[in-house]
Computed example of a mutant assay.
Amino acid sequence: MTSITLAPIIKKTYPDFKIGYAIYHNIVVEKSPQMVRGRFQFYQETMMMDLEQTDLLTFPAISEWRSIFKKFGTDPAKYRPSSEALLRRLKKRDFATSRSLCCRHQQSSVTSIQNSNWYL
């Protein structure tokens, strides 16, 4: 089993901080079936339209991560939280991939950001 150790400063600054991870074994990454690519492209286009007039800082997950970055002395405008970077790429229409594993992960991440009930 993999062990993750948090730096003491993280525990001190955010005593309730939680982290999760996934380990995959025997995964074969190959080109996505056309149906999956088509559905993912439709999902991307729908999200792009939804995000056109949206300020990304209105998402609680993004605001929270930016706040965390600032508390640790990192400029979130220079080094963006991954959740914000994903949405910015989507807004710029720079989000395409042909790998099913990547498609599923990115779609899951964007959906989670949208729901903002948990943080990336």
Rank of each mutant, 00 (worst) to 15 (best):
P60M: 03
F59R: 03
L51G: 05
I9N: 09
E30I: 07
L56I: 10
I10T: 14
Q41S: 14
T111Q: 12
I19Q: 12
Y24G: 02
K18I: 13
F72Q: 10
T111D: 12
E45R: 13
N117T: 07
K91S: 11
W118R: 02
M1A: 12
S63P: 03
V110R: 00
M35Y: 10
Y24I: 00
E52L: 13
L101R: 06
I19N: 13
Y119W: 06
I27V: 15
H105K: 03
S100V: 02
T54W: 01
F95P: 02
Q34S: 14
V28L: 11
R88D: 04
D75S: 04
K12D: 14
S109P: 00
M48W: 08
F69G: 00
T54G: 00
G38L: 02
T54Y: 04
P33N: 11
A61Y: 02
P81H: 03
E84R: 06
E30W: 05
T2W: 11
S116V: 01
Y21H: 15
R89Y: 01
H105C: 04
P60R: 04
P8N: 13
L57M: 09
S112P: 00
F59G: 03
V110G: 01
L86V: 01
P33V: 10
Y79A: 03
I4N: 11
L51D: 08
K92F: 04
D94R: 06
Q114H: 10
R99I: 00
S116C: 02
T58K: 10
I62Q: 03
K71V: 03
Y43S: 12
Y43I: 10
T74R: 04
R104T: 07
L51I: 06
F72A: 06
S3W: 09
I10S: 12
S83G: 13
E45K: 14
F95C: 05
R88G: 01
F59H: 05
K91P: 03
C102F: 07
V36L: 15
W118N: 04
Q53E: 12
L101C: 04
N115M: 06
Q34W: 05
R80P: 07
A77H: 05
R37D: 07
I10D: 11
P15C: 11
